[in-house]
Write a protein that binds this DNA or RNA. Structure first.
Lengths: 152, 152
DNA sequence: GCATTCAATACTACATCGGTATACAATTCT
DNA sequence: AGAATTGTATACCGATGTAGTATTGAATGC
């Protein structure tokens, strides 16, 4: 499955919206309505995004949230990490091994390499890039095109 | 976290071992001892690997498991998928949307693109490639080097 | 000072995952 | 044929983590 949690998915969805609105602010309730994500859940996600300084919040009347940087400067890696913590394919990937097999495992120390590549892909894809992936046009990347060149 | 489950991790560890042994057979109990993965858990993993036809099993005395193909021809993507099912970053990624937001979500149809890239990285890395990642030398890929070229 | 809006904390239900136990079927060797 | 060896199948349990909810508090601006 190799999956990204739903909260992180929501996070990206929300960030993407804020990107299109920028620099306007958007209240939490509006965000919930627009994205169809339940309000209390939005609250939880927003906290992560604020803590990670991906969005700026303002309280009081006409308050709300605002994307901290241009969409092109926010990577999916950051967005996911903001919600779910450091990205790591396995426990081995994140160096400080919690894995009790670590010593006998002859794969230890190899995962980080694989991890680095996947990470880099996510780091190289920004919120703005998402727009260039056409709706329902599955397999066409953007600034990753050069990265793909030797493959396709 | 973007994580790969522990069972899949074990699967890769085991496949890797079988690769080094090939074409010799290895009994389940030996596998458990060598990898330090609990026997009942090995049982579970082996079933997946057999079903996916990544390993060949033989019963009776002197039976055991054998890697079905040369290690260079077994990708991490296959190995992970064998244990955990189809790889998808989000529910959106796998086309047949279970996501009830799908219709209103303006990100639907964009995930598959991202997904495809990550997938391709995993498809391009084989069991044999793992050996070329030096122990505790975090960031050095192998046949993916050309893929990295435009990045580093 | 009052309405509006975000912040923080704690809690619950549920699913998934890792791990275990047990009974069964197939093959080989003698 | 029969015993020993080895994989197969099913069902179960418990811990963990995730998504979602509720409630109360604090800041801002008019």
């Amino acid at each position: 499955m190799l999956k990204v949690g739903r909260l992180a998915d929501y996070g990206i969805l929300i960030l993407h919206h804020l990107g299109r609105m920028r620099p306007a602010r958007l209240a939490m309730e509006s965000i919930a309505e627009i994205t169809h994500v339940p309000l209390p859940t939005v609250r939880k996600v927003m906290k992560f995004l604020v803590d990670a300084e991906l969005v700026i919040s303002k309280r009081g009347p006409n308050g709300g949230y605002q994307l901290a940087r241009p969409p092109a400067q926010v990577s999916l890696a950051e967005a996911i990490a903001a919600v779910e913590g450091p990205l790591a394919l396995t426990e081995c990937s994140s160096a400080d091994g919690q894995c009790e097999l670590h010593d006998q495992c002859d794969l230890a120390g190899r995962w980080p390499g694989v991890n680095a590549i996947v990470l880099r892909v996510l780091e190289r894809t920004s919120l703005a890039d998402l727009d260039r992936f056409g709706r329902h046009e599955p397999h066409v990347p953007p600034p990753l095109r050069d990265l793909m060149a030797p493959i396709r």
